[in-house]
Simulated assay, not measured.
Amino acid sequence: MQGAAVHRLVTLLARGGGKEIANEDIKIGISIWSSTDVLGSQCKRILDAAAEALGVQIQYVDQAHVSEKVTASVEQLCAAGCQGIIVCNSADTEMTSAIKTCNDNGVYLSQFFRVISEKDNPDIYQVAKDSEYFIGAVHENEVENGKQLVKMLLDKGDRNIGLIGWEQGDATWLGRWEGYKAGIEEWNKENPDDQAKLSEPQYAGTSSDGGSKAAEALMSADDTIDALIPAGGGGDPLQGAIAAVERAGKVDEIDVVSTDFLPDLGERLENGSMAGESGGHFCDPLYAFLMVYNAIKGNYTDIAGNFVDVEFPYLYVSSPEDYEAYEKYFVDQLPYTNEEIVEISEMSLEDMIAKAQSLSIEDAAARAGK
């Protein structure tokens, strides 16, 4: 985010003559693809902790990344009396409706794991930027993520990579795909005698069964595939793809990398059913939640024209040793205590963004050991 834009979003005590809303009267809605799959349940865990720490109400709507359900979920949460909503998954086109609904109802809104593409959808981006209620987005650099995952595979000697997407047109998927292709192109340019290739994507949706069928289709179409990238979709497509590779007896022949850590990632890195993964934290929704919370409290104002773009760093693991420290500080316990969540909620927007961007395994370990 541009510094000038951050500074225009000043921190104030309260809106409307200094009259502050009590935390117990605040209700924040969560429109999420799933609150029960691998990544979604991790998101729910930290959001529940934030709601408890701040003493606010929270309400979930699972929308399965079905377009009409995404837009309906925002309407449902507004009707339920939420003063703020965070949303994911949400394609750019769906955000037009979501932002209008929130504008009409005076409800604050932010995205997590997603950002509206200013390049691909400038009109929608402008609608978001002009809104007095749409704060912005918390997400990762997906192009760089894609390049890093391809590099993991190429460094392991893989040259024929099968690709599994989840939903056509999803902004995060498109960013990752761009990164995968860029990684292959860079390698091939630098290694003319050792070329690599990437398949066209098979789409899996967000289910384990979809991931399994997509992996089977790729392996059936080309029995020389030596790597698979199930690009994402919450973790379930990845589990289905791994199961398909195991059923085919090709664990030793096909390296699998993906985004969004599985709960048994350490074991899978040990037994070879996964070669590496990116992701590792589920705190995007926490920061989107805290941005909305502060807007409701009146602490963040002058929102129109000041789109907040918070880019989170990914974590990467490619060995059991890499995963061990992550498990200790992100799985066995949350990376933030309730007290730290309260402290973050009281930060200025500038400081909150800096706090988000400093999150790492080393940062969590240092705070846990203080």
Rank of each mutant, 00 (worst) to 15 (best):
I21P: 04
D284N: 13
T11W: 06
V107A: 11
M291N: 06
E144P: 00
I30Q: 10
L315Q: 04
E327C: 08
D123C: 03
A366C: 03
E20M: 10
G175N: 10
A241Y: 04
V256P: 01
V317P: 02
A241T: 07
L238W: 07
H65D: 14
T36A: 14
A128K: 01
D222K: 02
S73P: 01
N338I: 00
D332T: 05
D223Q: 10
G162K: 02
A80K: 04
A231P: 01
V150S: 01
Q83R: 07
S273L: 06
H65P: 00
D236Y: 09
D255A: 11
V87P: 01
S73N: 05
S131L: 07
A53Q: 13
P230L: 06
A231M: 10
K181L: 09
R45P: 07
T259I: 14
M152A: 02
V138G: 02
D222L: 06
K156Y: 08
P237K: 00
L153N: 08
G3I: 13
I164Q: 00
G240T: 11
D92I: 01
S207P: 01
A137V: 04
G210V: 12
V56F: 14
D332S: 08
E346T: 07
S220R: 04
D222Y: 03
S318F: 07
C88A: 12
S273M: 04
E52N: 11
K27P: 06
A5N: 11
Y336H: 07
V61S: 10
P192G: 11
Y108H: 09
Y314S: 00
V56H: 11
V56R: 04
C283D: 10
A231L: 07
A288R: 00
G298E: 09
D193N: 15
W173Q: 12
V256I: 15
H7C: 03
I254G: 06
P237M: 05
G40Y: 15
V70W: 03
N103S: 06
T101F: 14
G81L: 08
G162P: 01
A231E: 09
D120Y: 14
F330Q: 00
I26M: 11
I28K: 01
A295G: 08
V127I: 15
D363C: 01
D209Q: 14
G81T: 10
T71I: 12
Q148A: 14
S41V: 01
W166P: 03
E178T: 13
A50L: 08
S207C: 02
D62S: 10
N23F: 04
V74P: 00
W33L: 01
R114I: 07
Y108N: 05
Q195K: 14
N121E: 15
Q57C: 08
A128W: 10
I32V: 14
D104M: 02
K189F: 05
S90I: 06
V38D: 12
K197R: 12
S73Y: 03
V308E: 02
G279S: 09
S110M: 15
E350D: 14
I184N: 09
Q2C: 05
M352A: 12
